[in-house]
Design a protein around this nucleic acid. Structure first.
Length: 781
RNA sequence: GGUCUCGUAGGCUAAUGGUAGACCCUCUCGUUUACACCGAGAUGGCGCAGGUUCGAUUCCUGCCGGGACCACCA
């Protein structure tokens, strides 16, 4: 047989699935349908290996469920909303959204997306992700806009959304507020300077990394237990350079051994300052502009970093720096652009979550987490929340916030029948003072939309799929965002959990480290597909348990390829000898070995089904894999080979029956993991007899109860294999060929036990004669 | 610093309160009526220290060492 061309086979199979709509949802009204809240990948050019990994894993589960339950809802979506898309569009078209009109930029985004999306989705089809691509949404299309805005309107009307001016986490580069969840840590080096404030003519030393914030200083904190400063509490400190007085306040939050033990409170240097100023009812003195420039006398219009340099020079000149050293510390940066964040007071929209921590923890408890310990990450996140969920973003591209505000303070949101709507295109008058209202120009945070992914998918199928969905598959790094926000929305809207089960996949690592562009240790799945095959890639992805990271090992791809090849070859052998077999005929009495083999297959079905049902696809794969190689190929095929070639009548028929059904079951068990090659075997050999259009639409093998007497018989398998292996070892040691003829001597109990299998045993060991003796022995002829 | 997770052959990974199992690598052999993307055989392993137990790789504690998430900007 010529070497199989995997790419040719996979292309053919892919086309077959596509043309025959194999993965179209069969029955949306089925109450027992297995529904999946598929993660919508961000259209970012192309799929990366992490996608290939996690989408393969969820596809194992879905393919199993499709065969097992008969009906799945597995929609597809893309996340085309938000900053990543803006950045991609800016890069692709070499433009800056800041310099463009909103309408113009949005059009460019939609146009660009339209261009690149088909190729992007094709990547998912290429690895065999069995979504119903007829049911595809985009988080920016009108339908998603409608659902997302509807969510906003409903929650606003329920009093769960409010607009408030508040020091918000702000990205001066993107010029937008961002959520707590969008922060990332970044190491950076800076100068740590101890400045000379003064109190009653004496120096009061305060250390800081942010001298440019000096003019926004509104207080100085010391710890009430700090004896060094006890005498100055209640007095005032003089701020250097700007020469004004601020109160010295005793506050527990000042740590005695940090810096000089004295802490300056600025408006706003960090989250802590925001807290401190509110707590003590201080009047903030905001100097930070939205574009990151400082508004302080002598430093007007300078960007933070520039102002910091300048003010340090000035301080030095005036001998106001007591001490200075270089340190590296960690700063919060915006995860999309890497810019250090600031706190700026702007009006923003929030969803109340802080007051619902308890309920949200309760919701988390109602969901089955796989693996279970991932729930703790959710719990920790919810328990540690400090801010309400900020859902507005000052961007061009995105879903408009459907609201208008009057100068009198009155706010009006859109009516449901107006959605989707861009408020800037509609004029509304204030119901109170009849003035023309100002339309909101901010857009919704992308998570505000992706958190209604179940509702968006449901809307695509005329609301036939209800909450909770059966499954949410996702990665662990977005538990605090996607999982959390989705739980929030379902709770606020319907007081329901969004899904019964959530499965969390791990990351792909290389040499133990997470793969990421910034580390440059990425592997391109396209190249992997090219070199190996989709089945091989999936085989690799099936090697890790849920939640665990998996190191990328090219070897595993090789192993996957070998499996695919082996399946094709085994099928080839089986059907070479089963040309006229009808799939049903069986002898009155099966040969013992065949019966044992089939019973072992049934036991395997039991184990594999159990594993898949609890989402342990890696265990399932391992079971089938081991059985296929060890039991089926290495031993069973070798045992029945001669009986198939040379046997006659019932003896041959028995083998044919066992081979036909044994292989069919095995490829079905393999089908969720390696869908292409199993489909190929099914289409080539089984379809005409079995009748199902695709192996993936066929029924999962039935789990049978095995009687005790059958179990007893199964033990004989070990005895047979044991003898066979001993013979092989003997031959190996004597450096003889495996097919060399021998005289075999077995112990009495072995002979008795294998009474009904002696013919087959002779065939597989090359024994001309088997006799009884005091010990195991092989004699070469 | 906190939370969680992991530490098993040269590499990667599995199971398990009682002789630790694959795959890749290495070594030795063999084979052509399924398969050289083959077959057979061999070498080789539970991070460290305590505790619970008749018995610990497995359970507990501490330490050491990875990783993830969170916190930390005086």
């Amino acid at each position: 047989m010529a070497k199989p061309n995997f790419h040719e086979i996979e292309e053919k199979i892919k086309k077959f699935w596509d043309e025959n709509q194999i993965y179209k949802t069969k029955d949306l009204s089925d109450e027992n349908i297995y529904s999946v809240d598929t993660p919508p990948p961000t259209v970012s050019g192309k799929m990366h290996i992490g996608h290939a990994f996690s989408y393969s894993q969820q596809d194992f589960i879905v393919r199993f469920m499709r065969m097992f339950k008969g009906n799945v809802f597995y929609p597809f979506g893309t996340d085309d909303n938000g900053l990543p898309t803006e950045r991609l569009v800016e890069k692709t078209n070499n433009v800056k959204s800041k310099n463009m009109g909103r309408q113009e930029f949005v059009l460019l985004c939609l146009e660009t997306l339209k261009k690149i999306k088909p190729a992007f989705i094709q990547d998912w089809k290429d690895i065999g992700v069995s979504c119903d691509y007829n049911v595809t949404y985009s988080t920016i299309d009108p339908q998603a806009q409608k659902i997302s805005q509807k969510s906003f309107v409903e929650l606003y009307n329920k009093g769960q959304i409010y607009k408030k001016s508040f020091p918000t986490i702000w990205c001066p580069e993107c010029q937008t507020s961002i959520a707590q969840a969008e922060l990332e840590d970044k190491e950076s080096s800076t100068k740590f300077s101890t400045l000379k404030f003064s109190c009653e003519g004496k120096d009061l030393l305060i250390a800081t990394t942010r001298p440019e914030m000096l003019y926004s200083c509104v207080a100085v904190f010391v710890n009430p237990k700090d004896e060094r400063y006890a005498s100055i509490v209640g007095k005032t400190a003089n701020v250097p350079i700007f020469d004004y007085e601020v109160p010295i306040i005793a506050d527990e939050s000042a740590e005695i051994d940090k810096g000089t033990g004295v802490l300056m409170i600025c408006s706003y240097g960090d989250r802590f300052d925001v807290d401190a100023i509110n707590r003590h009812g201080l009047t903030p003195k905001v100097i930070m502009e939205k574009n990151g420039t400082i508004n302080a006398p002598g430093y007007e219009g300078m960007y933070v970093t520039k102002a910091r340099e300048k003010i340090l020079e000035d301080l030095k000149e005036k001998n106001l720096i007591f001490e200075q050293k270089d340190i590296t510390h960690v700063v919060n940066v915006h995860d999309k652009c890497g810019t250090a964040i600031e706190f700026v007071e702007t009006p923003q929209w929030f969803i109340s979550v802080i007051d619902k921590k308890k309920d949200l923890l309760e919701q988390g408890n109602k969901i089955n987490w796989y693996p279970e310990y991932m729930k703790k990450r959710y719990d920790n996140w919810v328990s540690g929340l400090e801010w309400d969920w900020s859902i507005s973003r000052n961007r061009h591209f995105g879903i408009p916030i459907p609201a208008w505000e009057c100068s009198c303070g009155e706010i009006v949101v859109a009516k449901e029948n107006e959605l989707p709507i861009d408020p800037t295109t509609v004029e509304k008058k204030c119901p109170k003072c009849n003035e023309v209202m100002v339309p909101e120009t901010m857009v919704l945070d992308t998570w505000a939309t992706s958190s209604v992914s179940p509702q968006i998918a449901t809307d695509l199928v005329e609301n036939k799929i209800k909450l909770p969905y059966s499954l949410r598959p996702q990665a662990h790094d977005i538990i605090r965002t996607w999982a959390f926000y989705t739980i929030v929305k379902s709770y606020l809207h319907e007081n329901k959990i969004p899904w019964k089960d959530i499965v969390i996949s791990g990351n792909v690592s290389l040499g133990g480290e997470k793969m990421s562009k910034s580390k440059g240790n990425v592997v391109d799945p396209k190249a992997v597909l090219e070199k190996y095959s989709a089945d091989a890639l999936r085989y690799w992805a099936s090697g890790s348990k849920l939640g665990s990271d998996l190191d990328y090992q090219e070897n595993d791809l090789v192993t996957g390829m070998k499996l695919v090849n082996k399946i094709l070859n085994a099928a080839n052998f089986v059907f070479m000898n089963l040309k006229d077999y009808d799939g049903k005929s069986r002898p009155e009495k099966l040969e013992k070995v065949d019966l044992i083999f089939l019973t072992k297959v049934e036991l395997l079905v039991k184990r594999v089904t159990k594993a898949f049902k609890s989402y342990e696809y890696s265990k399932a794969k391992q079971e089938v894999d081991e059985f296929f190689w060890k039991v089926f190929c290495d031993n069973y095929l070798e045992i029945v080979k001669k009986r198939v070639y040379q046997g006659e009548g019932d003896k041959k028929l028995s083998a044919e029956y066992a081979l036909y059904h044994g292989l069919l079951t095995l490829i079905k068990l393999f089908a969720p993991i390696v869908p292409f090659v199993t489909e190929e075997v099914y289409q080539e050999h089984y379809k005409k007899i079995e009748g199902d259009e695709s192996i993936h639409l066929s029924r999962w093998p039935e789990v049978k109860n095995i009687e005790q007497e059958e179990l007893d018989v199964v033990h004989k398998w070990e005895t047979i294999v044991n003898v066979v292996e001993n013979v092989r070892r003997w031959k190996s040691k004597e450096q003889k060929a495996m097919n060399s003829e021998i005289n075999l001597t077995l112990l009495k109990e072995e002979l008795v036990s294998l009474e009904e299998c002696l013919e087959d045993l002779k065939n597989v060991t090359g024994a001309v004669e088997i006799k009884e003796g005091k010990q195991f022995r092989v004699d070469f002829i």
